[in-house]
Design a protein around this nucleic acid. Structure first.
Lengths: 216, 216
DNA sequence: GTCATTGTTTTACAGTCGTACAACAAGACG
DNA sequence: CGTCTTGTTGTACGACTGTAAAACAATGAC
């Protein structure tokens, strides 16, 4: 018996590989088929290594969920940052990022749904969900305030929080329908639909957000 | 060894018990813990019996998903029927049913999400999802037409289909946010929010749907 | 070049999984 | 009451599960 040759990786790199492999296997094979052995194989690693980075497979799944949420949020935050100091552009970028690739994808939706299905029976998933939701809402609220203020609309924290909730509902609904790929609207249209609806919800003049659309 | 005493049930009754037990275990314990043995125990039956009603556990899961979708749709259809021949009341009832108990629940959301997470890796789930979505859309389209016509608004099948898609997105988004129980709005308000937004989407006079609200 | 460290593989194990099938008993029918 | 049908139970089996731990080898320090 000759042993497999291998390469030592930094803790961060290997951990990341395992998390990405976990997500890939769940999305491609389903959560039921996502065994430790299959995930390890996908990561190009032996099954035993998992326990070197995570206390249990369950802990790795929790970390993978947090990893996914982090990707979704940071992708949106990065696109918002492309707007620089322009409040309208920042908000538009944030909304658009959530309604276009890579956040808009059946891959991510499949994972999101799988984990959402577990928050009822596992408090760890529920906590990760709650934290991500809070962070998302807070970012929205912070971005909404200056946009509303610039158009001389009420923009107290309380106002903006309610608007953030409504906007989050809109984004979630459109993201869900778009990612489910019902083929009912061109994915490229989705961001425009969302930006237009966001203007309505925030009572902004027509085009305030839409003219900052990056795609197309 | 003395055998457990048991009762023979009709095929329909036993099948239904097994499907309900399947859903209950998935929601309460998570899909990973939903083994055939645990499901059988929940149904008050031995594990071997499953194979008498379903060719495999997988087939039972598929049937359970279809069962859930059927519940969601028929609950909404029944509440629509309470509106009798009044087109406005029928549509309002349909929308409201999807935004209040029993359709609005963390139990049902948990199941819905779990199955949605599997449509990417299993064609059988995808087919069930597609069929349910089509049926839902068609019901909306049929109910929208007379409401629009009564207010002398365009109501061709093409018009109503687009409106049904938009309305479905709204319902899905609100249902999702409401069922996730973020505690951000009173569940009783949700139906009112949805009816009000539906009036906007369909360009109906204020109160057209809202005054048919059954709850409260 | 040698050694120590430790990331990685391999093997082993007890438990659980889905399921096939034989034994049984509940209910229907005469 | 006896007999037949078949819904239901109990058991057995091989495959797979998560995980513990020993054996090993890649890398860095000197």
């Amino acid at each position: 018996m000759t042993r497999r040759s291998f390469q030592r990786l930094s803790e961060d790199a290997r951990r990341n590989d395992l998390l990405e492999a976990t997500l890939a296997v769940i999305a491609d094979c389903g959560i039921n088929a996502a065994s430790a052995r299959r995930i390890a194989e996908r990561a190009g690693v032996s099954a035993g290594l998992i326990r070197h980075y995570f206390a249990s497979k369950e802990e790795m799944l929790h970390a993978a969920y947090a990893h996914l949420i982090g990707q979704l949020i940071s992708t949106a935050a990065e696109q918002a940052d492309l707007g620089g100091t322009d409040a309208d552009a920042r908000l538009a970028g944030f909304v658009e990022a959530n309604l276009s690739a890579p956040n808009l994808s059946d891959f991510k939706l499949s994972l999101w749904a799988t984990f959402i299905g577990m928050i009822r029976s596992d408090a760890a998933y529920a906590a990760i969900h709650r934290d991500g939701y809070r962070e998302f809402l807070e970012m929205l609220q912070v971005m909404i305030a200056p946009v509303r203020a610039a158009h001389e609309l009420p923009a107290t924290p309380a106002d903006c929080r309610l608007l953030a909730i409504a906007l989050n509902g809109l984004i979630d609904g459109l993201w869900l329908e778009g990612s489910l790929e019902h083929g009912l609207y061109d994915p490229r249209e989705l961001a425009a639909i969302g930006l237009r609806a966001a203007e309505d919800i925030l009572r902004l003049p027509e085009g305030t957000l839409l003219r900052h659309r990056a795609g197309q």
